[in-house]
Simulated assay, not measured.
Amino acid sequence: MEKTVNYVAVAAVGDLREGFLTEHEVEGRAVVVAATAEGIHVYDAMCPHSDFRFGASRLRLGCEIECQMHGARFKADGTGAVTKGPAKEPLEVLDSRVVDGVVEVLVDWLI
Rank of each mutant, 00 (worst) to 15 (best):
G62N: 10
V93H: 06
G78W: 04
T83D: 13
E64R: 13
Q68T: 04
L94R: 06
V103P: 01
A81K: 00
K88G: 12
C67P: 10
C63V: 12
F74Q: 09
Q68N: 10
V103M: 07
V93L: 09
D77Y: 05
P86W: 06
G62L: 12
E64P: 08
Q68C: 07
P86T: 09
C67K: 03
S96A: 15
P90N: 09
V99P: 04
M69L: 15
F74D: 13
S96D: 06
V102Y: 03
K88V: 05
G78I: 02
A87C: 09
R97L: 07
V98L: 03
V99R: 06
V98R: 04
G78K: 01
D77E: 08
D95P: 05
G85N: 11
T83E: 10
D95C: 15
A76T: 07
E66H: 10
V105T: 04
A72K: 07
G101A: 02
G62W: 11
P90Q: 07
K84T: 14
R73C: 14
F74S: 08
H70Y: 13
V82T: 11
V103D: 10
V105I: 00
R97Q: 05
C67Y: 11
D95V: 08
K88A: 05
L94A: 04
A76W: 02
V82K: 06
L91A: 03
V103N: 04
E104Q: 02
T83Q: 12
R73S: 14
Q68S: 14
A72H: 07
T83P: 00
E66S: 12
V99M: 01
A76I: 01
A81F: 01
E104C: 00
Q68L: 08
E92D: 09
K75S: 13
D77M: 03
V99G: 02
L94S: 08
K84Y: 03
M69Q: 13
A72C: 08
D100T: 02
L91V: 11
F74H: 08
D100W: 01
E64I: 06
A87H: 03
A81T: 09
E66N: 08
G80W: 00
K84P: 05
G85R: 04
L61Q: 14
